[in-house]
């Protein structure tokens, strides 16, 4: 595994690039992994990297790009929209030349077009937003402030909002609320076994899930 980067232009910096994790041995089968979004991205990153290690052992290259404004990126998330993330995955695809794509959870909302592949645990943008809005309402209530999810959503679509520690612009909220997963083959939890790691209150890792997901993908890319 090596750190790599891919050109990912910004309006203010056409020469900008973002980091990616890459297992690149010049194999014929090359998988672009589109990470889960927001806190789910953290909860699923360990699983994604372990799947990539296993695929590497099976002769499959894989690439996990940082989305602008997340992980190592210096871009300001507050100014980004879902469309910018979709543009970033297209830029990553241009650079890494994948043969297949694996989207994880909300990653299914920003899949580059034209690649065969899978989505593990697809979710609507509105559902991700709803959970984050609800967490904010709950923590506000604990602090003695009364907020409503519906009221916050209306306000967020006009002025942006901070949710789960992420400062989201109005455009991001509007596009999330309307976004549906791309038409990729769904990987259900039954295939992976155990319980979904994005639901865990405490981030966790399950080697057996990485084994199962990698085994499934190894067979599926050659089917």
């Amino acid at each position: 595994m090596t750190p790599a980067s891919y050109p990912c232009p910004r309006p203010t910096d056409p020469g900008a690039s973002e980091y990616a994790l890459a297992f690149d041995r010049g194999q014929a089968v090359r998988l672009l992994v589109i990470p889960a979004l927001f806190d789910e991205g953290h909860k699923l990153r360990h699983l994604c990297v372990e799947v990539m290690r296993r695929l590497d052992g099976s002769g499959i290259d894989s690439f996990l790009p940082d989305l602008p404004g997340t992980n190592e990126s210096t871009a300001d998330l507050n100014h980004l929209t879902l469309a910018d993330w979709a543009a970033a995955t297209i830029a990553a695809a241009h650079h890494f030349r994948p043969s297949h794509v694996l989207a994880v959870r909300g990653g299914g909302l920003i899949v580059p077009p034209g690649l065969p592949g899978w989505c593990y645990g697809p979710v609507k943008g509105s559902s991700l937003l709803r959970t984050m809005l609800r967490a904010r309402v709950l923590s506000a209530r604990e602090a003695g402030r009364e907020e409503s999810g519906e009221g916050l959503l209306v306000e967020a679509q006009e002025h942006g909002i901070e949710l789960a520690g992420y400062r989201l612009g109005a455009g991001m909220v509007q596009q999330m609320q309307a976004a549906s997963p791309a038409a990729l083959a769904e990987i259900e939890q039954d295939v992976v076994g155990g319980s979904p790691l994005w639901l865990r209150a405490e981030p966790d890792y399950a080697p057996a899930q990485a084994d199962a997901l990698a085994a499934y993908l190894t067979m599926a890319v050659r089917a």
Binding site: M132, A135, R136, S139, A164, W198, L199, A201
Partner: peptide, 12 residues
């Protein structure tokens, strides 16, 4: 471990 984010996930 049941913080507000976990409860929100639980409810959804």
């Amino acid at each position: 471990e049941l913080d507000s984010m976990a409860v929100a996930g639980l409810l959804t």
